[in-house]
Design a protein around this nucleic acid. Structure first.
Lengths: 209, 209
DNA sequence: TACGAAACGCTAACCGTTAGTGTTACTCTC
DNA sequence: GAGAGTAACACTAACGGTTAGCGTTTCGTA
């Protein structure tokens, strides 16, 4: 994955990276709303259409972590040790993401995001997408025939945990609070019985604490 | 509020209503994306700038219930009987809203919303706004000195309940499931002890079931 | 009646985004 | 290595939501 498989793809990746870097620099320098797409394209020395060939929207220039976050969430479910219960695994993933986003170096970026309604809205709708992916992963993990309301509910709660903890003045503590609540919600979840009797290798939730 | 306090305000309200009605009719007839702002303004016989003087965005033309929903949520907290516990009161409000939105007559509208990414995104970010209002109301109800993470968390869970139940094939049943989970989360919430010993008339949660 | 303000209109533009249409540069195949 | 196919990129022009600037009407009120 670190090997360059061909000149074409390398050039493409370079162009994409240059656009992303240029955009972020301009945004942080002058403010997100004060920088237009045409500015970014000019500074990155590409055409506007090229920019949109690499990024689906202006907001996507900022949220390049989008796909990463989604992967981290679903992988927390699918790639966890065989007998690790679900919620703590998710807590770990969310915790890592929160720590990553509340680090000193990330502060200016998130300050910019919090200051721009457009970016805030984008982040919210991104969370909903991630929640849906997570719900699918959870349903698969429980060997359910389809994604249930309970799966979707837990998934939403988990992605909201990220948002709430990140915005809190004490993220680590907030994470504790919220996941205590999520854990409780999970135990009150009616999905479990079905999971325990379903065929295949359904990893229901084990004793956890 | 039903009394006309002046000709000016009546005319303004009439203009606003005419715009909203015209917009909704056009949207349902031809589809949200197929109708432009200029079309709506022309059909309502007003200038585009007038339209935007009454509604902050195209999406707001569809979500005229916005303020109503927000009021219903906060009122469910502030106007409930003296000893009614918090979560069931919120369940009642959400239930009413869900029933209202899943009624036969509302079906085409919500079908349109679900079909348009722009409207979906708007609804999501609307929910976040409502959640913040609700969190403030909850904090006030618990006589907390400021809005805590726990308040925000419960508020988010509650507004997500609306979304999840509305999208479910069996909303009534989904509501049961989700609020069982929310109730459990609420009981695991660390805010309560502070509420019980705080001064004034803090209505902590009572025995409920 | 005269004045201030609110509601409304018109024009012209800005900005994000896309369709249409080439042109260049790489990869693959013979 | 020549040629074909294709992916990346550029350019133009436009579309649709939104806003600023500025003038006009209409209402409430002193």
């Amino acid at each position: 994955m670190t090997e360059p498989p061909g000149r074409r793809e390398r050039k493409k990746a370079a162009t994409r990276q240059k656009i992303a870097d240029t955009a972020l620099q301009l945004f942080l320098e002058r403010g997100y709303d004060a920088v237009g797409i045409r500015d970014v394209a000019a500074a990155a020395d590409v055409a506007v259409t090229t920019l949109f060939a690499h990024f689906p929207s202006k907001e996507a220039l900022v949220f390049d972590l989008d796909a990463d976050f989604e992967r981290q969430l679903t992988h927390a479910v699918t790639d966890r040790p065989p007998h690790e219960p679900l919620v703590p695994a998710l807590r770990g993933a969310i915790g890592a993401m929160v720590r990553h986003c509340t680090a000193e170096s990330a502060a200016p970026l998130w300050r910019m995001i919090d200051d721009s309604p457009a970016l805030r809205d984008f982040e919210v709708s991104m969370r909903m997408r991630h929640a849906e992916s997570l719900a699918t992963a959870i349903a698969a993990d429980l060997a359910l025939p389809h994604v249930t309301t309970a799966c979707r509910t837990i998934a939403r709660f988990v992605v909201e945990a990220f948002s709430l903890a990140r915005e809190s003045p004490d993220p680590e503590n907030a994470l504790d609070e919220i996941f205590r609540m999520i854990e409780a919600a999970w135990e009150a979840c009616p999905t479990e019985p079905r999971a325990r009797v379903s065929p295949g290798a359904p990893r229901g939730r084990d004793a956890s604490g």
